[in-house]
Computed example of a mutant assay.
Amino acid sequence: MMKHGLDPADRHRPERLSCSELAIRRQSMEQFLNVAGPQIDQLYNLVCLSGCNVLLTDAEGVVLDQRVNDADAAQFREWGLWQGVNWSEAVQGTNGIGTCLVEERQVTIHRNEHFHTRNTAMSCMDAPIWGPDGRLLAALDVSSARADQTERYNRLISAQVAQTARAIEAIFFHASFPDARIVVASGEGIAGDGTGAATLLAVDKDDLAIGATRAARRALGLEREGAIRPRPAADLLGREDELSGFDKAERAAVARALARAGGNVSAAARALGIGRATMYRRMARLELGEK
């Protein structure tokens, strides 16, 4: 890591943010941390008996949350795998968290693959988490203190880390568009990004796609980052638009009003802001029989 001016033999313990600095970072990602918490708990329950520490960082590599066994806490704290510590490559050299964030992919850094010699007693399995705006949001890490942990076992943990990261990403996407319906963008001609990440669209009441996960953005050729320009969901998904044309759109609106009114034409007409006679004429034109 010559570009960062780091010394692999440096034995100094990594510095931690102050409590107030860490609190500010956590507060800025409060909704995300609330969503991720239960998923981290589930992951920890799977790996806690094997001497593992589960960590969640922000996009800069600062650890914001963690789960660790009391029996293993002292060792991980000594290594600096703790809340408030920066594990970016610029600070720590090659390591699971920092390398995952730099390369924007799932990685496993096993023992002596770490840059700093002080970190070569650990194995780290990481996966990136992408935000609803298509930007890298966090890294999920499981680090092991076991000297006898095999690479085969690391692969099993790595698969679980990736699955949990994808689950957090999908759940946070849902939470970020509470008033939209979430559609899985799958079908002929649509392929994901090869990571198994959720290919999701957020669709508003007018059937316009207003949000997309990173995998959906890549698969559908949408804006790489930031807000997307609203587009008809049917156009993106390559499906026949059941609401195309004014007649079909009107038919759908009238049908919805009737359904909500339990078939009561007068109530449906009032909901649409039209008279009962007009409602009957529209129903006849649109071939909607009275229920």
Score class of each variant (00 low, 15 high):
residue 2 M to G: 07
residue 11 R to G: 03
residue 13 R to A: 11
residue 15 E to C: 05
residue 19 C to A: 12
residue 25 R to F: 07
residue 25 R to S: 12
residue 35 V to M: 05
residue 35 V to W: 04
residue 39 Q to K: 13
residue 42 Q to W: 15
residue 45 N to L: 06
residue 55 L to P: 05
residue 62 V to W: 04
residue 72 D to R: 11
residue 76 F to R: 01
residue 76 F to C: 03
residue 77 R to P: 04
residue 86 N to G: 01
residue 87 W to P: 00
residue 102 V to I: 10
residue 105 R to T: 12
residue 108 T to A: 10
residue 108 T to L: 05
residue 109 I to R: 04
residue 119 N to M: 10
residue 121 A to R: 10
residue 121 A to K: 10
residue 121 A to M: 09
residue 122 M to W: 08
residue 123 S to D: 13
residue 126 D to I: 08
residue 137 L to I: 06
residue 139 A to W: 03
residue 140 L to T: 01
residue 145 A to R: 13
residue 148 D to M: 15
residue 151 E to F: 14
residue 156 L to P: 00
residue 160 Q to F: 12
residue 164 T to M: 09
residue 164 T to N: 03
residue 166 R to L: 04
residue 168 I to W: 00
residue 170 A to I: 09
residue 174 H to E: 13
residue 178 P to H: 06
residue 186 S to L: 06
residue 199 T to F: 00
residue 200 L to C: 07
residue 204 D to N: 02
residue 216 A to T: 01
residue 217 R to K: 00
residue 221 G to I: 03
residue 223 E to L: 11
residue 224 R to H: 09
residue 226 G to L: 00
residue 227 A to R: 15
residue 236 L to I: 08
residue 238 G to F: 01
residue 248 K to W: 14
residue 250 E to K: 15
residue 259 A to C: 02
residue 259 A to V: 04
residue 259 A to H: 08
residue 260 R to K: 08
residue 261 A to K: 02
residue 268 A to V: 02
residue 274 I to T: 01
residue 277 A to G: 05
residue 284 A to Q: 15
residue 286 L to D: 01
residue 291 K to A: 02
